[in-house]
């Protein structure tokens, strides 16, 4: 057997081809995601600006369209300041953990029928596992910065994320019961029987999930970890330059991830009222833009919660509601059988 026969055995070729396909898919998804993150910041500043009767960014490019690129260049060339007394390795790794957790979870989301980077059986559990890691990035950033603002912000955030994770996991149990699967593609296919998706038979679960999603991504009205008036910028107060940008990107990736999970589990994923030719992912992206807008809309509308109200809402309202939803779904399933 010569060299070529060893290298180009059918088995090895198959594995290499599979790996290449996964790699290409991952590069496409990360590229599209990064583009969305960049312009989500622009979209946020524009929509909140107009809601407050301002124009938002206008200077860089027509209607400020090049503003995100200017922001990126500025952040990239800024000096990277590490506070004295910081725990350096942890200070460096914290933003990476944050961004890793969000981006890895996106790999199991089906963008259209048959297009998913990792089509695994435990997709929904994988997303819950990865989003539970998000707390580490925030906690470690706050602790390693050796600053009281960062530390208080990170303590608030970890308590918040742990509390709302329970409600989020329980709100998705109804979806698992109705679709009988944890695979996200199967969940989307199970929703074909319900026009629009699971959002109306699972209205309670959808409500609990959305509230928990806002809390998990630290967005208004639950943005206590970074309450500007009390904590400067919360857990990333001491971060600057590229490391700050990583946290910023992680926040938007988190928002996009939560929107994608909501769409996949409750709004029928890639499915729409009618098929759009040649663009199978059109419906998913339209729904995604709506959810991103919803995040901004709520930010411009409601004030911030107080900390004890936040905890009471999570433990005394959302978790019982999610449990009630599981009970109800189970009863209906048994009665209809």
């Amino acid at each position: 057997m010569n060299f070529f026969e060893v290298v180009f055995q059918p088995g090895i070729m198959d594995i290499i081809v599979k790996m290449l396909i996964i790699l290409v898919k991952a590069v496409v998804v990360v590229g599209v995601l990064m583009l969305h993150v960049t312009y989500a910041t622009y979209f946020e500043r524009k929509s909140i600006g107009h809601m407050q009767v301002r124009l938002g960014p206008m200077q860089v490019g027509p209607h400020g369209l090049l503003q995100p690129i200017a922001d990126f260049i500025k952040l990239f060339f800024k000096e990277d300041i590490i506070p004295a007394g910081a725990d350096k390795p942890i200070f460096f790794i914290a933003p990476v953990i944050s961004i890793f957790a969000g981006m890895t979870a996106i790999s199991v989301i089906p963008f259209f029928n048959g297009f998913v980077i990792a089509d695994i059986n435990i997709g929904l559990l994988f997303i819950l596992a990865m989003s539970s890691l998000n707390a580490y990035g925030v906690m470690l950033a706050g602790w390693a910065s050796n600053s009281k603002y960062s530390f208080l912000g990170s303590l608030r955030s970890s308590a918040q994320v742990i509390s709302y994770e329970i409600a989020m996991g329980l709100s998705l149990v109804g979806v698992m019961m109705m679709s009988g699967s944890l695979n996200l593609s199967d969940i989307v296919r199970a929703q074909e029987r319900f026009p629009g998706g699971f959002y109306w038979p699972q209205a309670l679960g959808f409500f609990v999930f959305m509230v928990a999603a806002f809390a998990e991504t630290n967005r208004t009205p639950f943005d206590l970890p970074e309450a500007e008036s009390e904590l400067v910028a919360g857990y990333f107060t001491e971060y600057s330059g590229m490391r700050f940008a990583l946290f910023y990107v992680a926040e938007y990736v988190g928002m996009i991830l939560m929107s994608l999970v909501a769409i996949t589990c409750f709004l029928g994923g890639w499915d729409g009222p009618f098929a759009i030719p040649y663009v199978p992912f059109a419906w998913l992206f339209l729904k995604l833009y709506f959810f991103i807008f919803l995040f901004y809309w709520i930010r411009a509308t409601v004030p911030r919660y107080r900390y004890d109200q936040l905890m009471a809402l999570g433990w005394k309202l959302l978790i019982p509601l999610a449990l009630l939803n599981i009970l109800g779904t189970g009863l209906v399933k048994v009665l209809l059988r």
Binding site: L125, F126, A129, M130, S132, L133, G169
Partner: peptide, 11 residues
């Protein structure tokens, strides 16, 4: 495997 991450690493 998923529960290992959710319960031990995550909680």
């Amino acid at each position: 495997a998923a529960v290992q991450i959710i319960v031990y690493a995550g909680a």
